[in-house]
């Protein structure tokens, strides 16, 4: 797993469905593992296969369309809602993605994604529709996601939009730091704080 995000330039896979919940990203029956690895093969399992049968891929689902590939997943509004299962972020990352773009992310998913060096990029609804249109018209369309300068760009047309991320998280993602390293470095302060609790 890549533990750093900087500038990513890639073609993209469009999942133009609203309110994608984490049960769709990884169904609960695959949550029985005790490690973080191997969830990618069951990513969007029930949208990818008829009756759970890997020999019967659903043709109209984007992940089964050989024209669509790359490390950027472009998804519609309210992506990652529902269950807090981090397995959803693990499955997407393990499925080969480093960036998810949407006009709106569910809170818990967004945190889970960042904690796994999967960059959630929130764009306007208008820009999202431009992305879908460009990718669907030409699956070879390249998208550039630039974390240092905080913008996303459709390479062929040059259209771009800035995105927000707090400085702390940006630093973590650029350098491969995680929250646990930071929190462990301040346990003395935490112990001090605890003295004032009743």
């Amino acid at each position: 797993m890549s533990k750093q995000i900087n500038i990513i330039r890639s073609t993209a896979v469009p999942v133009n469905i609203e309110n994608v919940d984490t049960d769709q990203i990884i169904p609960a029956r695959f949550l029985k593992a005790t490690s973080r690895e191997g969830f990618g093969k069951n990513l969007f399992r029930d949208w990818r296969y008829e009756n759970d049968d890997e020999t019967k891929p659903k043709r109209n689902f984007a992940l089964n369309n050989p024209a669509y590939k790359g490390s950027i997943l472009v998804a519609a509004k309210n992506f990652g809602c529902g269950s807090s299962r981090e397995h959803a972020a693990w499955a997407i990352k393990d499925g080969g993605f480093d960036v998810v773009v949407s006009s709106f992310f569910a809170d818990i998913f967004k945190n889970n994604a960042q904690n796994n060096f999967l960059l959630p990029v929130t764009v306007s609804e208008v820009f999202l529709q431009k992305l879908f249109a460009a990718i669907e018209q030409n699956p070879a369309t390249e998208i550039e996601v630039n974390l240092p300068e905080q913008y996303i760009r459709i390479v062929s047309s040059g259209e771009k939009e800035g995105f927000d991320i707090n400085n702390y998280k940006k630093t973590c993602l650029l350098n491969g730091y995680d929250d646990i390293d930071y929190l462990l470095s301040i346990t003395e302060e935490i112990s001090e704080y605890e003295k004032n609790l009743f």
Partner: peptide, 15 residues
Amino acid sequence: GIGTSEVEMVLTTQC
């Protein structure tokens, strides 16, 4: 609700 990385944070530092 939190994800598993956050469960790890709370187990390690209560924060």
